[in-house]
Each structure stands twice: as C-alpha cells, then as structure tokens.
Write a protein that binds this DNA or RNA. Structure first.
Length: 399
RNA sequence: GGUGAGUUAGUCAAGUGGCCAACGACGGCGGACUGUAAAUCCGCUCCCUCCGGGUUCGGUGGUUCGAAUCCACCACUCACCA
C-alpha cells in the first residue's frame, strides 16, 4: 500500500531531493493518519492554465489522495518583481482587485483537478509585506552573489552579457522565504525551478525552522511544436479552458513522438498500458492516429466530459477527414456591399488587408467552398461562408 | 564617475550615403503530399481595396538633392576600470 503510493507519487518525476523525507511523511500518514503540507507556487498574472500546469496539478492530486494538504500559493508579491528579462516592458503592477479576480479564475480552473477541501489558497504578500526593510535585509544576508550566480539562467545571462536586475536576485529568496513561513514539508515545481525550490530548503535551515522541505520536480511539458516548453506567450499551448473542439484538435496535431511524452505526463493510464500501446504501434498492429485519438479523447473528457469529447471527435472527422464545414461557425454581419479583402479582415480571418490579399493570391481563401480568384470581388447582400486555409471559417451576412 | 562596444522587422542577424521595405537563418502563414502528424518540395511574410502610394532600422534634432548608413544630444544594454 505504502509502496504503491510512493510509486504513484514518483511516476514521471524528473528529480526528487530528499526522497527519505517523502517516504517518512507517507509512512506517518499510513501508520497514524498524520497529514503534511505540499507547497506549489503560481504567478497571479497568467490565470489561463494550460496542460503544462496540469502536470503539476495532477501530481498534487495524487498527493492529496495520500494525506497531503496543498498550499496553493499565489505569488502576488513576487509577481511585482517578475522576470524583467531585457525588454523595455516594465512589469505592470496588478491592482488588488485584479489579483482577486485572477485568483478566483485560478480556483475555478484548479479545482477541476484538485480537491478544494484539502487545498489552502494563500497569497505571499500577506507575510512578505510585514517583513519590512529590515526583514528583507536579514533575508539577503543568508545568501551571497557567487552562489546566486550558480543558478543556470543567471550564469548564462551573466556570461552572455544580458542584464540582470538586483530585484531578480531577491526573487528566489522570497520564494524560499514562503516555505519558511508556510513550514512546507514538500514543495513541487518544474525542473526549471530547481534553484528556487532548493532555496526553500536553504532558508528553512537558515531560519532554524527545524525542517527542510523535500523537493519534487516534474519535467517541463513541451508545447505543440515539440521543442519549446508549453507556454501561452509562445502560443503552443493547450488551455484548460479551451473549447472541446480546439482541445481535441490540438492534441491530434502533435507529432507521434511527442504523443508518448504527453501520455507519460498527462494520461491516467498506467505505465504498462502505455508500454503496450507503444509496442502496438511499433509492430504495426495499432495505427498511431488511433492511439493519438485515444489520448485526445481522454484529455478532452477530463476538462469537459466524455460526451463532449466524443462530439469533438465527430466534428473533427467531419471537418478534416470529410472536408466539410464545421457545424458551428462564428457569424458576422455587414451593412451593405463589402469587398472581399475587407470582409476577411472583419471576420478575423486575416490580420490585415495586405495579408488577406496575399491569402487570396495563394489560393487559400474560399467562399462557399469555392476558391476565390479575384481579389477585387465585391460581396453583395446574401450569406457567405468564408474560409482561409484549412481551419479558419466564418459566416458573413451582408445586408 | 571614466573608457570602449552596441541598439535593424516575431527572434537571431547582414547592411556603413542613392541599386533598401532592407541579404540570410529560424519561426509563422499558405499550397502540394498526408493521418489537420512528422519529413519533404514550392510560395508568402510592414501597412494601404488594384495601378501606385504611405510609414519604418532605440529617441530627438541636424548635415545632405538624398540617411538604417554621417554629426550632436538623450535613453537603454554590455565589457573593463573606479
């Protein structure tokens, strides 16, 4: 029982620091029902969770199954520092109202996976603000610059001559201090967070809290391109809040190779089940597309429902396998005659008139399934189905 | 505070007075092929309803018939010195 729990907890983990401690905590739970805390931190600026985040969340859900109380930390204070990597864009300070709103949005998404009864949502401004200048100073005495520069990304930036702001040095310290305040037993995060996660251990020791948190790191999930990490800014993500059709389509668009990665980190299937699928594909008894569809169904069903997932699959087959028009298309209307280029822009099918013209020239634009060959075409009153490329559709009513 | 180097499109990066809306690479988009996959091949990639025109190369001002390119100042980044 204990062994199984441990196995489940360790599945997919990239690295675990202080394995022993985790084992002890679990043993205490199984023997005496003692609970423990697992901390995870999120930035309040980006409340749109994607599958990359859910790798962590799913892991937390497993912990909850085995006696953990989750400390879901929203870094409202640390967000003010953020990561000013070059760029002129000064970090926007979020208003208290915005933070509350983002937090609410987080909860809504997060509780699709986590058990709210075993989750405590906390904000770090609550204890960092009272620190004051002197508290902050004390914090900075616990660490030195040379060690700070050991951190991989600082090191790279320093060597490559990119600027590093002093405030960025404070960031890991504050994150570590969160663990001091919360007396966390375990903290989990992505492998890119290793330095910050270890800082929690360091500070818990420096502040003589009597414990040092164990650290469990999950691998970073690659985005749809299969190369860079999944992130909103790279636009290679599958959002938790994505529509079923989008979600299904996006999963299906990943490469076969990447599919196995997603299986490992996102699927509820056991490792041996996944191994069986792999063998099936390798010896030709399973078509990779079928295997990918299964994954797409599983993921879509998790965030929506099985019914909606199946509908998404049917819609997908309809549009892509049979080249039909989707059942639901966004509708637009126009008063009076309109030129085709303007129509494409107005319907969000092209970002600019110039682009619209190019699309037409390249034969990418269609009206009612027919290629447009005249870029000066005027649309008179009536209803049109406009299409650019394979996936972008819109319905336009001209009156 | 001093000295030197730098700032070009989504990113990297050429271009040092007219042939520059600006080489190239990556990315992105479209087409062919497919399993809306990958790989591959081809095309496009500032804006403007065509012809043609407009606005760009950190910012401001200047030199010049003409500036991404020269000059001045400002801002930002990096290195070395203090």
């Amino acid at each position: 029982m204990l062994q199984e729990a441990l196995k489940e907890i360790k599945r997919g983990a990239a690295e675990i620091i202080d394995n022993e401690r985790i084992e002890k905590l679990l043993k205490a739970y199984f023997d005496n029902k003692e609970t423990y805390t697992v901390k995870v931190g999120f930035d309040p600026t980006a409340p749109d969770l994607h599958l990359g985040h859910t790798v962590l969340l799913q892991k937390l859900a497993i912990f909850q199954k085995y006696g953990a109380k989750i400390q879901f930390l929203i870094g409202d204070f640390t967000a003010q520092i953020g990561d000013p990597t070059g760029k002129s864009a000064t970090r926007k300070t979020l208003s208290a109202f915005q933070i509350q709103e983002n937090a609410a949005s987080y909860k809504e998404q997060v509780f699709k996976i986590l058990d709210p009864l075993k989750t405590e949502v906390v904000f770090n401004s609550e204890w960092i603000n009272p620190l004051g200048a002197s508290g902050m100073l004390t914090l900075t005495t616990t660490f030195n610059v040379a060690r700070m520069l050991e951190r991989d990304d600082f090191d790279k930036r320093y060597k490559s001559g990119t600027s590093i702001s002093i405030s960025e040095f404070i960031y890991p310290l504050l994150q570590g201090y969160d663990s001091v305040h919360l007396k966390s037993d375990i903290e989990i995060g992505g492998t890119d967070q290793k330095f910050n996660l270890l800082m929690g251990r360091h500070l818990q020791r420096a502040y003589e809290t009597g414990k040092e948190q164990a650290v469990l790191m999950m691998p970073i999930l690659e985005g749809l391109d299969g190369v860079q990490k999944m992130s909103k800014s790279l636009n290679n993500y599958i959002g938790v809040a994505d529509e079923p059709n989008d979600m299904f389509g996006k999963v299906l668009s990943i490469s076969d190779e990447l599919m196995w990665r997603y299986y490992e980190l996102l699927s509820a299937k056991t490792l041996s089940e996944i191994e069986a699928l792999k063998n099936g594909v390798a010896d030709g008894s399973l078509h990779p597309k079928k295997v990918k569809e299964e994954l797409a169904l599983e993921i879509t069903a998790r965030f929506h429902s099985e019914v909606l997932a199946n509908e998404a699959k049917m819609e997908f087959d309809r549009v892509h396998s049979n080249n039909q028009i989707p059942t639901e298309i966004e509708e637009f209307s126009s008063d009076g005659e309109i030129s085709i280029t303007k129509a494409l822009v107005d319907c969000n099918l092209a970002p600019s008139t110039s682009q619209a013209r190019r699309d037409i020239k390249q034969g990418a634009a269609k009206i009612n399934q027919e290629k447009i060959d005249n870029e000066h075409l005027q649309l008179r009153s009536g209803e049109y189905i406009l299409q650019v490329g394979k996936r972008k559709f819109a319905k336009l009513k001209v009156s």
